[in-house]
Design a protein around this nucleic acid. Structure first.
Length: 460
DNA sequence: GGAACTCGCCAC
DNA sequence: AAACGTGGCGAGTTCC
C-alpha cells in the first residue's frame, strides 16, 4: 500500500514523540510529601472552620429549614434549588443544560455575603482534593510520573493524567503557591520551563498568511498595543501607562476573536472587569487608572462619549467589523475558504500531515488545525531536546510538557549549555525542518533557584 | 456498587 | 445563522 509521505511524517512524529515522552514520564517529578501531608491537614482545618462559620448564618439556617432532608452544602443542585426555586431569585445565567447557574460569577452577582464563605471553601477543597490528594495518591518513592497522551485529543494535541500535569494552578496566587510549593527538582538540581511565545498566533499565520499579521509577527509592531489604543480610544498607546489595557485588549478581545467569539460576548466581559454601575453607566470612582493621576478608565470613556454598556457594545461591534473587514481581511477570507473546503471534503489537513475528520462547526474547523500544528512544534522540539541531552551525556532531563512548553530538571552546571541547545532547536532547527513555518519562532525561559520548588519560577 | 451524567474549575 | 477551541478531574447525582 502506498503511504502518503505527509502521513508517514505525521506517524513518525507520534512514534518518536511517545518514545521521548515515555523517558520524561520515567524520570518523574519530585514531590515533598511531608509538606503535602502537613498542608492537607492545615487546609482541612481551615475548611472545617469556614463550614462551621457558614452553618451558623441565617442563609444556611433558612436553607436547611426549607429543605426536606439534610442539606449538603457542597451540592450545587441543592444550592440552585434553594436560591432559584425557594428564594425565587431571578436566574441571570444558566448552565449548559438550562439550570440556574451556581458558579463563582453567578454567586458573586447575587450579592449575598454568606456565599463568600462557600466560595472560599470551594477554592480550598479544589486545592486539597484535586491537586494535593492526587500528588499523594500518584507518588511513588516521592516522585510523581504524570502520563502525557498523544492518542486522545481530536486536534492531535496532547493530554495528561494521573496526575494531570497540565492544569496546575498558576494565575490564582494562593492556589499557585500552595500547589507548586509541593513540586521539586532532584536534590541539587533546578526546574526550568521553556515556552514558545504566541505560538498559536504564529502557526495560524502560516495557514492564512494574512499580510498585516505577517508584518506584526516579523517586526516589533505591537498588535495588542494597537488594539488597546483602538478599543479604549487612546490618543497614543504607551506601554508604561496602558499595560493593563493592553492585557485587557489581548485577553478580552483579540484572543476570543481568534477563537471565534464575537462582540456580544467580548464587550460585556471587557466592561465588567472595571466596574459598570447597575444603571449601565460607567463607574467614575473605580476602575483602571489610565495614567498616574486619578483619571480612571470610566472617566476617560465618558469623556469620549461612551457612558453606557450599550454604547460600549456598539463601539466594540464597530471595532470587530474593522478587525476582520480591514485589519485582518486576509485572515477572515481564509477562515471562510477553509470552512468551505471542510464542508466540501469532510475533513481538514494540518500543516504537520495529520487529518481531522468528523462533524465540525466553523470555529472547530479553524481552531483544530492551529491548535494541533502548534503543539506539534513543541513535540518536535521535545524530541530533539530529548535526543540532544542524551547524546551529549547531560544529567539534565526533560520531565514534562504543557502544550507549548517543556519542563526540565537541570543540573545547574549544565544550565547554560542546555539553554544553548534548546534555543538552537526551538528556533533555528525547527524552522529548517518545517518549511511551512514562515514566521520566526521564539521561546521564553523561566527558572527556579537550585533546590527550590516550582512556586519560585521566574524569568531569566 | 459501578457506569454515566452534570457542574464547576484548573490549565493552554 | 450563530456566536470561545482543547483537555482532566472531584463531588453530587441518577441509572441500571
Amino acid at each position: 500500500m502506498k503511504i502518503n509521505p505527509r502521513t508517514y511524517e505525521a506517524y513518525k512524529l507520534l512514534h518518536d514523540g511517545i518514545l521521548a515522552i515515555s523517558k520524561a514520564e520515567q524520570q518523574g517529578i519530585r514531590v515533598d510529601m511531608e509538606y503535602v501531608e502537613a498542608k492537607k491537614i492545615g487546609l482541612t482545618r481551615k475548611i472545617d472552620r469556614l463550614e462551621d462559620e457558614f452553618k451558623v448564618t441565617n442563609f444556611f439556617k433558612h436553607w436547611q429549614h426549607t429543605s426536606r432532608g439534610k442539606v449538603n452544602i457542597h451540592s450545587n443542585e441543592q444550592l440552585a434549588h434553594y436560591i432559584y426555586d425557594i428564594k425565587k431569585i431571578k436566574v441571570e445565567s444558566e448552565t449548559d443544560s438550562g439550570q440556574g447557574s451556581t458558579n463563582e460569577e453567578a454567586l458573586l452577582n447575587l450579592n449575598i455575603p454568606e456565599l463568600n464563605l462557600l466560595l472560599e471553601v470551594r477554592k480550598l477543597k479544589k486545592i486539597r482534593d484535586t491537586y494535593l490528594d492526587a500528588f499523594a495518591r500518584e507518588q511513588v518513592n516521592g516522585y510523581i510520573h504524570p502520563f502525557f497522551n498523544l492518542h486522545i485529543v481530536r486536534t492531535y494535541r496532547s493530554s495528561s493524567d494521573s496526575p494531570n500535569f497540565q492544569n496546575i494552578p498558576k494565575r490564582d496566587e494562593t492556589a499557585m503557591q500552595i500547589v507548586r510549593r509541593a513540586l521539586f527538582p532532584r536534590p541539587g538540581h533546578q526546574l526550568i520551563e521553556v515556552d514558545y511565545s504566541g505560538i498559536e498566533v504564529r502557526v495560524a499565520a502560516c495557514y492564512h498568511k494574512d499580510e498585516t499579521m505577517l508584518k506584526y509577527l516579523r517586526s516589533d509592531y505591537d498588535m495588542h498595543g494597537d488594539m488597546a489604543a483602538q478599543i479604549f480610544l487612546l490618543d497614543k498607546y504607551e506601554k508604561s501607562k496602558h499595560y493593563t489595557l493592553r492585557q485587557a485588549a489581548k485577553n478580552g478581545f483579540v484572543f476570543p476573536e481568534f477563537y471565534g467569539d464575537y462582540y456580544g460576548n467580548c464587550a460585556p466581559s471587557l466592561a465588567c472587569s472595571w466596574g459598570k454601575l447597575p444603571n449601565g453607566k460607567w463607574n467614575r470612582g473605580e476602575g483602571i487608572e489610565i495614567d498616574t493621576s486619578n483619571y480612571t478608565l470610566g472617566d476617560h470613556l465618558i469623556a469620549k462619549g461612551i457612558s453606557s454598556l450599550s454604547q460600549f457594545e456598539n463601539h466594540i461591534k464597530k471595532i470587530e467589523a474593522d478587525f476582520w473587514g480591514r485589519r485582518f481581511a486576509d485572515y477572515a477570507n481564509w477562515k471562510d475558504t477553509w470552512y468551505r473546503l471542510y464542508q466540501k471534503y469532510g475533513y481538514i489537513d494540518l500543516l504537520t500531515g495529520f487529518r481531522c475528520s468528523g462533524i465540525m462547526g466553523k470555529n472547530d474547523s479553524i481552531n483544530y488545525p492551529v491548535q494541533g500544528a502548534a503543539f506539534h512544534c513543541l513535540l518536535w522540539s521535545f524530541i530533539e531536546v530529548s535526543k540532544a541531552l542524551e547524546a551529549g551525556g547531560f544529567d539534565s532531563k526533560l520531565i514534562g510538557q504543557i502544550h507549548d512548553s517543556m519542563i526540565l530538571d537541570i543540573l545547574p552546571s549544565e544550565l547554560e549549555d542546555v539553554k544553548k541547545v534548546i534555543r538552537k532547536i526551538t528556533t533555528e532547527d525547527l524552522m529548517n525542518a518545517w518549511k511551512w513555518l514562515i514566521v520566526p519562532m521564539d521561546v521564553d525561559i523561566e527558572a527556579c533557584p537550585i533546590d527550590a520548588s516550582w512556586a519560585e519560577k521566574s524569568k531569566i
